[in-house]
């Protein structure tokens, strides 16, 4: 499965489980405006570690936290290489 569609799936799934209204997932969307709270992000990261086999946050402790949804996807795509 490609990284982008897996990330979209997890954002959508976690938002649904937590009764969050998810904003349209465009690359320019600020993550803080996505509708997910930090617990949701934590769960998304944990699930992506399972499905994609990477956790870029833990692999690079100096990494800057992504600001937009597009940053988030590139962050994972970069880690997966």
């Amino acid at each position: 499965m490609d990284t982008r569609s897996e990330i979209v799936t997890q954002f959508t799934q976690v938002a649904k489980e937590h009764d969050k209204r998810l904003a349209p997932l465009t690359d320019g969307l600020a993550l803080l405006d996505s509708g997910l709270d930090s617990l949701c992000f934590a769960i998304v990261v944990a699930r992506l570690e399972n499905s994609l086999g990477v956790d870029p946050f833990s692999e690079d402790e100096d990494a800057r936290f992504p600001i937009t949804f597009g940053d988030f996807i590139r962050f994972y795509e970069h880690a997966a290489k």
């Binding site: 930090s38 992000f41 934590a42 944990a46």
Partner: peptide, 10 residues
Amino acid sequence: AKKNPITGAL
């Protein structure tokens, strides 16, 4: 617990 970069643990 599972370590997590956002919340410390899950």
